[in-house]
Design a protein around this nucleic acid. Structure first.
Lengths: 131, 131
DNA sequence: CTCCGACTTGACGCTCACGTCAACGTCAGG
DNA sequence: CCTGACGTTGACGTGAGCGTCAAGTCGGAG
């Protein structure tokens, strides 16, 4: 696959893919003319990179974590690093849940202040969340 | 309270508080000499601002959402806006959970490749999460 | 009154994950 | 060979949420 197709399938820009290569996150074979060609697995790899970015990790962190995905070899240091990153993700997760619940409070209290009946189509948060 | 105390209690920098005021997110009374003085509630307000930032909202979004926290009045437009933001937070939440689980997979598979016994002190992820 | 730490207003710097423009090369179809 | 879509490198731009320095002011203890 060439860069445009990968970009479209993974839902990112072409520029982003070149940036990933520049950061050492995503390798590409080159055609004789110099064009990048990617293996099909690149698409999922890019999606995972996006996940890590969304989790608040920077390029350096992603660069250190990504190799472990592929070959599954963990040094002692990498193992601790992964645990630390997992903990950060988990903490961020719990903060996000708290924030979501605060938003729900505002929405529900606002609901009480409204006059007419508003049909709730499943998007209105109910009390007692599990996830 | 003056700005330094608010900053310390809320766990942010003095610069951040001035930035919030600049963005209209956090009002402050002024002493005759021009120094900022805050009500005690400012601390929690700042924490909530941080929560919203961490949830990926920008200053504009926070600016529109914050007033609803205080007086609890919701226009139709604001209600929809809040629902939309909640949906985004929820989506981000689910992506984060997926990312965490992927990290767990890497950690656990790496665990299998290790030689000796590694004492798990509750920090090693187990299968079958609920939250 | 003096002193010193906390505060003030600018204003510029920084990081990061790209966006965007310029100028040019590649490649498959007709 | 020609065309047009797609690709290349290089470089500068962007936006947000502050960090940081400069030069001066405020305010309470002694």
């Amino acid at each position: 696959m060439r860069i445009g197709e990968v970009a479209e399938r993974a839902g990112v820009s072409v520029r982003a893919l070149r940036y990933y290569e520049e950061q050492g996150l995503l390798a590409a074979y080159r055609s004789p003319g110099g064009q990048r060609h990617y293996a099909p697995e690149a698409v999922e790899r890019v999606r995972f990179i996006q996940n890590l970015y969304a989790a608040g990790l920077g390029s350096k962190a992603v660069l250190q974590i990504l190799p472990c995905m592929e070959h599954g070899i963990l040094t002692q240091e990498m193992h601790e690093r992964l645990l630390a990153e997992r903990a950060r993700v988990q903490a961020q997760l719990e903060e996000l849940i708290a924030t979501r619940d605060k938003l729900d409070l505002v929405i529900r209290s606002g609901q009480a202040h409204r006059s007419g009946a508003t049909a709730s189509r499943g998007s209105v948060p109910e009390a007692g969340h599990v996830t």
